[in-house]
């Protein structure tokens, strides 16, 4: 699945961005420079980014501007970040947070 808006009737085309590879739960995904983790994963049709720490229910991007913290993920097995605010880079390793293992908060 690829959900990019390369051509927009008003905003014009956006086709010249550099492609990078990111890893989500160990699997490689294509992304573009300038993407956030959230936009890169959504472009690939991946909606669920973490599990609720108690119920284990799947959660994904809700507000997309850093207010709700629903999209938080672990980067490089170290930092917990908001996927919607964090820009990707080539080789970035991202992992879902699952129930009762929230990493370094």
């Amino acid at each position: 699945m690829r959900m990019r808006v390369d051509h927009h009737p008003v905003l014009g085309k956006q086709t010249d961005r550099k492609q990078v590879t990111i890893f989500f739960n160990g699997k490689p995904y294509d992304a573009y420079e300038g993407d956030t983790i959230a936009s890169a994963m959504m472009a690939q049709g991946v909606y669920a980014l973490r599990q609720h720490e108690v119920s284990g229910n799947a959660r994904g991007v809700y507000c997309n501007i850093g207010h709700c913290y629903e999209c938080r993920v672990k980067v490089e097995d170290r930092k917990v970040v908001r996927a919607c605010l964090t820009t990707v880079y080539h080789g970035m390793e991202i992992d879902s947070l699952s129930g009762f293992s929230e990493g370094n908060e």
């Binding site: 913290y69 930092k79 908001r82 605010l85 964090t86 370094n104 908060e105």
Partner: peptide
């Protein structure tokens, strides 16, 4: 904002 102890202590390892 939820912050790590390092940020609260003035360090720079942080949630972005």
């Amino acid at each position: 904002r939820p912050a790590t102890f390092e940020v609260l202590g003035g360090g720079h390892e942080n949630e972005s």
